[in-house]
Structure formats: structure tokens, C-alpha cells
Design a protein around this nucleic acid. Structure first.
Lengths: 149, 149
DNA sequence: TATAATTATCTCAACATTAAGATATTAGAC
DNA sequence: GTCTAATATCTTAATGTTGAGATAATTATA
């Protein structure tokens, strides 16, 4: 048990899951970052490029929903990608409030090259679990992520 | 399956776990933040106070190890807690490089009051899983967080 | 002991993140 | 059609986060 807290069994159990879950996410993130498969992209920048790569052009708002981030955050991450010429903003003609984010050729080339390498690092990390364990973990995380009805 | 990527079964499985795991962490974090049980503490500030509360005075370096953060980060978080009078820095007499972070009376009162409330919110979130599922999830996260030997 | 290597903390620049609010555009009510 | 609601994006201030490097103190070595 990784907590020193003295509470009911239910509390100790819940706290233990919570800590292990967060720690797994964090340490996995640290190890993947150290694997340098993202080259000089941040995790957020990679997330945006990957979403555009697999789903096509999206608005900042849609990106924020996908990545669970605020619109203000998306503005900055998109700004930084735009400065590097990896994406471009194209204002929608129908609804002039909307802006579609498109991958540039450079951006598409880059994410197309980096994604498979990064995926291999993820597969490698997951290989400490059997296929069945991975399916169990996925199911439990999905249930927990969804929350109460 | 929550990814549109076409790869081997192994790749799709690993990517699916990876996405679900991160999403569970993120959405749990968002919901817990929305529950406002942290009052006006940030997650990092709460983490520091909680560690000091349950483990006693610690150095910034030790806090960084516990929370998987850099020393520079700890400096800032401790700064902000110090400004609010929740902790104090006490330089070690034996090794004058070291600084022990101590909870003040105000800080101990605050974390002692907030922690049980926040824990109840965690228990509530975890209640979508049975006790057995929680134990499974904890075991799988522990294994994954640990990584390859 | 004097010097070198190590350790603990802090500083700095760049990017991330949120919450709250500003701006511009569209859609709905009358 | 005009005024109001709602929507999409952006802005700003405060905090977090890292990586690289500076500073100071200790330990190990010659």
C-alpha cells in the first residue's frame, strides 16, 4: 500500500488506485518523453498534430474537446505550431467565427514520420502487460474515465 | 476502439490502452478539480502539503521525487505556499545545502481539514468500480508504472 | 590541505494550462 | 429587420512545468 493514511478500507483502496493511476500516467509520460520519439515537439503539440493527421482539419474548439483542454490553451499551442509552419489557420467561409486548423505539407510529413516511431515506444512500454491485461486495463480506465452516469 | 489508426493488433491494443489511461487520468482530474474540494489550492500545492502532512518535513528534492517533478518546479510551488504562510523553509544545520520544508500551523490546519473532504470525492469517483475492479486497476497501474526491469 | 567532483537549491527562458473576460459573428425571438 | 442569446476565438494574469545552467556547500581525491 503506497499511502500512510489511516482510514476505512474503502478509503484506503480508493486512494491507492488514485495514486497508482496517476503515477502510472506520470511515469509513463516521463519515460516516453525521455525516449525522445517526439523529437522537438511538446506532448500538446504532438497531440494536436496527431488529431489533425488522423481526423482531418479541426477547429480549436474541437481540438480542445479531444484533448480535454481549454480554448485559450489551444490558441497558444496552435500559435506555436503555426510559427513553425506545421499548421495553418483557415477561417471558415460559412461561419466566420470558426477557424479550421489544417496541417501544412511540412506538418503532415513530420507527424507521418514521428507517429510510427512514437507508437513503437508505446507498444514497448505496454509490453510489460499481457494482451489480456491490456484489455482489462483499457476497460477499467474507460469505465473510470466516463464517470458516474 | 477509440483510435482511427490502422496498424497491427498489437499496436492498436497498446494505443487504445494508452489513450484510455491518459483520458481516465485527465477526466478524473478535471472532475475532481470541479468538485472544488481543493478550495483555492492547486493540485501541485495540495500534493506538497499532503506529502508533508503524512510524511513530515521534507527537502525540495525529496518532494520532487515523490511528485515526479523537477527541483526548479518545487522551488516555485514551495515559494507560492510560503507566500501564503502555509509552509516555511528551514535550512539544515548539518548540511547547509539542504532546506527542510515544514508545515506551519496554518498549513497543517488547512491540509488536515481539506484532505478528508478531497478523499471523499476520490472515493465517490472510484465507486463506479467494484472493490475487485479497483484492486485489478491498482495492480495493472503499478505494473505499468514500474516499467521494464 | 588544496583541488576536483558531487550535491542541493535556485534562476531563467520557453511553453503549457486555466479561469475570467473581451471581441466578433451567428442564430433566435419579437 | 432589430435586438438579444449563444457561440468561437482570442487575450490576459497567475501558476505550473521543464531543461539548462548558476551558485553554494559538501565530499572525495591527490
Amino acid at each position: 500500500m503506497s499511502t500512510h493514511y489511516k482510514g476505512t478500507e474503502e478509503e484506503i483502496r480508493a486512494l491507492d488506485v488514485f495514486i497508482k493511476l496517476n503515477r502510472a500516467c506520470d511515469s509513463l509520460g516521463v519515460r516516453l518523453a525521455a525516449s525522445a520519439t517526439l523529437e522537438d515537439l511538446t506532448v500538446s503539440q504532438f497531440g494536436v498534430l496527431e488529431a489533425l493527421y488522423h481526423l482531418g482539419p479541426l477547429c480549436p474548439g474541437e481540438l480542445g474537446q479531444k484533448l480535454l483542454k481549454t480554448s485559450g490553451n489551444m490558441t497558444l499551442v496552435v500559435d506555436n505550431l503555426e510559427k513553425r509552419g506545421l499548421i495553418e489557420r483557415i477561417r471558415s467561409a460559412k461561419d466566420r467565427r470558426q477557424i479550421k486548423i489544417h496541417l501544412t505539407e511540412t506538418g503532415a510529413e513530420m507527424i507521418g514520420r514521428i507517429f510510427p516511431t512514437h507508437l513503437r515506444a508505446i507498444v514497448e512500454e505496454m509490453s510489460v502487460l499481457t494482451a489480456e491485461e491490456q484489455q482489462d486495463l483499457s476497460r477499467l480506465c474507460k469505465k473510470l474515465g466516463k464517470g458516474k452516469p
